[in-house]
Amino acid sequence: MKLTVLGGCGAWPAAGQACSGYLVVHDGFRVLIDPGYATLPRLLESTPAEQVDAVLVSHGHPDHCADLNPLLRARVLGDAPPPPLPVYAPPGALDAVLALDRRHMLAGGLESRELAPGRPFEVGPFRLDVWSLPHHVPNAGLRLTGGGRVIAYTGDTGPAEELADLAKDADLLLAEATYPERVPEEDAPYLSTAAAAGRTATSAGAARLLLTHLWPDSPHEPALEAAARSYGGELAVATGGHTVRL
């Protein structure tokens, strides 16, 4: 299993970068997680739009799903449109991005599938487990299992007991870490820190920790230092082009 980071900025893409976007490949099957702002050009550097096999969207904020629109355009308006693209998302999360075009324009371009916690999904060679995690809008924590390896992804989330189950013994925990050590009070129930991600990774026994969704143009060192105070495993920040092979 291989994960490639397309982007990791929170809120908006900094110059030359992209927002949340991650390509996971296993047994030739390509899953795109969170096609946020500016992720499609990065994806197309290595993967034609028609070769994406499924999309997972953690929640409906545009820094996590805005580039679903150009991805669907590239597939539907190309010379040889591929079969409909399965897109998994929480209920209602895709309403805004799909409304950017007339309904018939993208008709037949996707199959919308609702993510609901409590039951596993089969996505190509992967098992997908889902947790409902706290954010400003409904947010799905995602756990992909394939070939005996596990990638756990928090989406954007505040503190939650469910994070321990999501990340348990994961080979890679991809964790939102908008702030290094403290979330402003008004957002404290809905966002997380690098320090909290480190504690979660340690308690869950995650083998690797990849911090993502840092505030645009913020330095990486404070986040890495905050996470490393409680986590001694392999640690990095998600930036475009970073790859992890499991």
Rank of each mutant, 00 (worst) to 15 (best):
G21N: 04
P35Y: 05
P70H: 06
H136Y: 03
D95I: 07
A177S: 05
P180A: 13
G21A: 00
R119G: 12
V87Q: 09
A204H: 00
L115F: 05
F29P: 07
L191V: 03
S218E: 06
A167N: 13
V244A: 15
A11W: 06
A170Q: 01
L142S: 05
R143Q: 02
G7D: 02
H104A: 13
D217P: 14
A197D: 07
P180W: 04
P62M: 15
P125W: 03
P41Q: 01
A236V: 10
L110G: 07
H61R: 15
T243R: 09
P125R: 01
Y88C: 00
I151T: 08
G21Y: 02
S20R: 15
A207F: 02
G60Q: 03
E176S: 11
T157Y: 07
T154K: 10
L85V: 01
G147L: 07
L166V: 07
L40S: 08
A204S: 00
D171Y: 09
P35W: 08
E234R: 11
E181Y: 11
S230H: 06
D101K: 11
V52F: 02
L85R: 00
K2W: 05
A201I: 11
L71P: 15
E45Y: 04
L72N: 03
L166Y: 09
A93Q: 13
P91D: 12
L191F: 07
A152Y: 02
P138G: 08
S192L: 12
L110T: 10
L68E: 01
G148F: 04
P82K: 14
R75K: 00
D63W: 05
L128T: 05
L133H: 03
G124Q: 00
T154M: 14
K2A: 08
E176Y: 15
A99M: 11
V52E: 01
L98G: 10
T39E: 00
T193I: 14
L100R: 15
A116H: 08
P13A: 12
L44W: 01
A167D: 10
P216C: 08
L191S: 09
G146H: 04
R103N: 08
D67C: 00
M1L: 14
Q17P: 00
D217I: 06
L100K: 10
V97S: 09
L94C: 09
D101H: 07
R149W: 02
F29Y: 10
L173E: 05
G8E: 09
E111A: 05
D53M: 02
Y231S: 13
R208M: 10
T202C: 11
L209Y: 13
A99K: 04
T239K: 09
A14F: 01
A89F: 02
A223V: 04
E111F: 02
L144R: 07
V97C: 05
